[in-house]
Each structure stands twice: as structure tokens, then as C-alpha cells.
């Protein structure tokens, strides 16, 4: 003990000893499967598996669609979060609550259901899809655009929740100060609100991107699995799990690495236990 230079003096209030047992099981449930993947991997064949045409196509498609979807989440979800956090609807006080409930729906809805809903809306016989088809000859389902729509659908709530929380935490006091200094609402938003919520916005974007990269259910039911057009990495993994097991494992590990990078780089504030 004498060699130790940093002795922790804080003892805290202590924990019930049995707490460690379920906690260990819970941790194992998350860690062991990932560890198992590492054991199953065919490391020698890894480069050729990852550099195959189909794998590269899927990776490229995943990255592009996830980036575009994340941008769409920012473009539409950002203002949505601002309105949910700041708008005052004195005539309809409960309207915002209702809107929020609907926006959060994709968080809990099975993605397959979301994909089907998109299909019924935008399919050739759907409410909007028929109009698009007749007027412009545009068919959305089973295209790359469909992949992007499906990903945006499931990922948008992550950005909205994170940004709305950041806006509420920042409060309106700084904006009021900016106004007393002569800043118009637009200027106060740009120079005060946005910088204040930037960390929350960044973590929301990272979460949304991660959700896009992992999207499966809504994509397969709305966009199908066409190589080069709609077959993203998760779809390829699912397809290869029987025909080419080591290929599936290699791609899975690639997704694990992407997820780890996302967690390390963009860990949302408050998720590292130190606030």
C-alpha cells in the first residue's frame, strides 16, 4: 500500500453485495456475443472478405445513405425540436404534446411496421405514391431514395429528443438577454441558441447516424435488398449469414467497429457517467 500514491479516501455509502450478480449477468449479455464474433472470425480471410465487391458496394451505400439521412434529420428534425422546445401555442396548449408523441413513435415502433407504413403511403397504389407516379412518373419504393426515407424515418426522433433536451436545458434566459441587447430573434438564434446547444446537437447527429447505419427492418420492407441500390451493410449481413458465414461475421465486425467509433467519438453527454 505504501507504493500507492493515489489512495481513494471516499468510501461512499456502500452497495448491497448481491447487486454485482445481476449486473455481471447483464454485462455478459452485452459483451459476450460481441466477443463471440471475434472468436468466430476468420482473420486470415478478413481482407478479401471485406474487400469483395458486394461488401464494398454495401459499405459505400450504407455510408452515403446514412450521411444523407442524417442531413435530412438535421434539416427537418432540427426545426421540429426548436418548435417543440420553444413555440408558444396559447390557443392550443396540448397540441405540442400530441406532436411530440407522434414524433417519438419510431423510437418504439417495430421498424418493419414503419417500413410497411412508408410503403402504403408512397407505393404505386399508396396515398401519395399514386400521385407521384401519375404526375411525375416517380416510383419511390425499392430505390436508394427509399433507403434514405426509411433511415430518416427511424433516426429523426433521436435527433429531436437530444436537441429538444439541450434546448430546454439551455433555457430561454440567454435569448432574453440577447434580445435586450438588440438582437432580433433570428440573430439571437444564430449567435446564442445554436452555439449553446451545439454539444447536444452533435450527440443527436451521432446517434441518428448510428441508427441509420444499423437500419434493417424498415429498409427491407420499404426498399428491398437490391445490390448496389438498396442493399446496405445490415441487409448484406443478413443475406450472407447462411450462404457465407465467415463473410457475414467479417461484415458484422465491421459494423461493430463503426459502432464503437461512434460511441467513442460522439458519446452523448451524460452517458459517460460524469455528466
Amino acid at each position: 500500500m505504501t507504493a500507492r500514491t493515489t489512495v481513494r479516501h471516499e468510501t461512499g455509502v456502500g452497495l448491497p453485495w448481491w447487486m454485482w450478480i445481476p449486473a455481471t449477468i447483464g454485462f455478459a449479455l452485452i459483451a459476450l456475443p460481441v466477443f463471440g464474433l471475434l472468436l468466430r472470425a476468420d482473420w486470415a480471410a478478413m481482407p478479401s472478405l471485406l474487400l469483395s465487391d458486394s461488401a464494398l458496394d454495401a459499405l459505400r451505400l450504407s455510408l452515403i445513405t446514412a450521411a444523407v439521412s442524417t442531413f435530412l434529420c438535421l434539416l427537418f428534425g432540427g426545426p421540429l425540436a426548436v418548435i417543440l422546445a420553444r413555440a408558444r401555442l396559447e390557443q392550443r396548449p396540448r397540441l405540442l404534446g400530441a406532436i411530440r408523441s407522434i414524433v417519438l413513435l419510431p423510437l418504439v415502433l417495430p421498424p418493419v411496421v414503419g417500413g410497411l407504413a412508408l410503403l402504403f403511403l408512397l407505393g404505386r397504389t399508396g396515398l401519395v405514391g399514386r400521385g407521384l407516379d401519375l404526375a411525375f412518373g416517380i416510383t419511390v419504393p425499392f430505390s436508394t431514395a427509399a433507403v434514405i426515407l426509411a433511415q430518416t424515418f427511424v433516426a429523426m426522433p433521436f435527433l429531436v429528443v437530444s436537441l429538444e433536451g439541450a434546448l430546454r436545458t439551455a433555457g430561454e434566459r440567454y435569448e432574453a438577454v440577447a434580445a435586450t441587447l438588440g438582437a432580433s430573434p433570428a440573430l439571437a438564434f444564430r449567435r446564442v441558441t445554436v452555439p449553446l446547444v451545439l454539444p447536444g446537437l452533435a450527440s443527436g447527429l451521432v446517434l441518428a447516424f448510428a441508427r441509420c447505419m444499423g437500419e434493417f427492418g424498415a429498409t427491407i420492407s420499404f426498399a428491398g435488398s437490391l445490390e448496389g441500390t438498396t442493399r446496405t451493410l445490415p441487409l448484406l449481413v443478413y443475406l450472407q449469414r447462411e450462404s457465407d458465414e465467415s463473410g457475414a461475421v467479417a461484415l458484422s465486425l465491421l459494423l461493430v467497429v463503426v459502432s464503437l467509433v461512434v460511441i467513442v467519438v460522439g458519446r452523448p453527454r451524460g452517458m459517460d457517467g460524469r455528466g
Binding site: V177, A179, T180
Partner: peptide, 20 residues
């Protein structure tokens, strides 16, 4: 007249300096 066009300044209990 809205807040930002009034030319009425405010010094509150909290300094509320823009942290960034």
C-alpha cells in the same frame, strides 16, 4: 414594440454571460 427594438437594457441578478 418587441424586446429587441426597445433600447431597454437589463442587468439581472445572474450575469448570464454568453458562455461561448
Amino acid at each position: 414594440v418587441p424586446v429587441h427594438r426597445r433600447g431597454v437594457g437589463l442587468l439581472a441578478q445572474q450575469a448570464l454571460l454568453f458562455p461561448h
